[in-house]
Nucleic acid binder design. Structure first.
Lengths: 149, 149
DNA sequence: GCTTGCTCCTACAGTGACTGTAGATGGCAT
DNA sequence: ATGCCATCTACAGTCACTGTAGGAGCAAGC
């Protein structure tokens, strides 16, 4: 297959979509982007549809969707006659996750502010920041720790 | 070294600190927790000071500090005569990071809400969620993507 | 034709902070 | 002695990439 007008090299597709070259290849390896035809010199030759798909992926990732969710959204968008209930459910789950993370971060912010406010600028020995990290009572570890994003 | 009253097995230290057994070993491998003496049967024998240190690490992690920051905070807390300016700086940087993440997540929340609100419940073909993921104009990719936590 | 310099290729290792697994011991209760 | 859980080591897997090594393609300048 020889290059046609309208084909993109991987670099061009990357620029046009805002996804890095290495990440484009990574998405192909993950099955999110179909393997495109190649030039005689073995270069990937992308069509506009690939660029559109990359843009879709990039935007979904910016919204914090996991690659697995992105894959589901892509396969749903490939079947336009299905009900969009599944799409809606994924979006709502993501919204709920964002809400949870904001609440968590705001609680952290409050605690950090308290720690910082009580620091009088002396030595580490009398530092409230260190102290409040040390002293904290053991409350059941129901936070499984930092979540992505 | 034979077990003494006040020594903890790794499982006990884990329960007492709220850190998982595997994670305790992981922290040792990362140099955050000193390697404890062993029993005749090669089991780790922790003292109260180890448990305190684990609690410190857990609390700092819950506040979103990276392990590298935790290591720094620990080494600072081991030298109580130093100025606590470095401690304060780490805490303030963490506070700033939390603020940035909240702002980012709130922007995502707004966009997700817009997407969800316009979904009329029809087919994927007419779904606004998919559409808004597809349509989005290419604005400079200045968000390097999801950050930890 | 030759060189320079960029883009592109594959394949694999590294990131952070763990989690999970396999297979071998330790040690206590029944 | 038998079962069973806790513990041991060592290593692979997670997520979403990023970085590196070692080549090859390709256009432009000389």
């Amino acid at each position: 297959m020889s290059p046609q007008p309208g084909d993109f090299t991987i670099g061009e597709a990357a620029r046009a979509s805002g996804v890095k070259v290495t990440t484009v290849r990574f998405y192909e390896s993950r099955g999110l982007l179909p393997a495109p035809p190649r030039s005689e010199g073995n270069r990937r030759l992308y069509a506009q549809s690939h660029v559109d798909r990359l843009r879709f992926i990039r935007h979904a990732r910016e919204l914090g969707f996991a690659l697995e969710d992105v894959a589901t959204l892509l396969s749903l968008s490939d079947e336009p006659d299905q009900s969009c209930a599944a799409v809606d459910a994924i979006a709502r789950a993501q919204r709920a996750e964002v809400t949870r993370r904001i609440a968590r971060l705001e609680a952290l912010g409050v605690e950090l502010d308290r720690m910082i406010a009580t620091c009088a600028g002396g030595t580490v020995g009398e530092c409230r920041v260190i102290e409040s990290l040390s002293d904290h009572a053991h409350c059941a570890a129901d936070h499984p720790g930092p979540a992505p994003m």
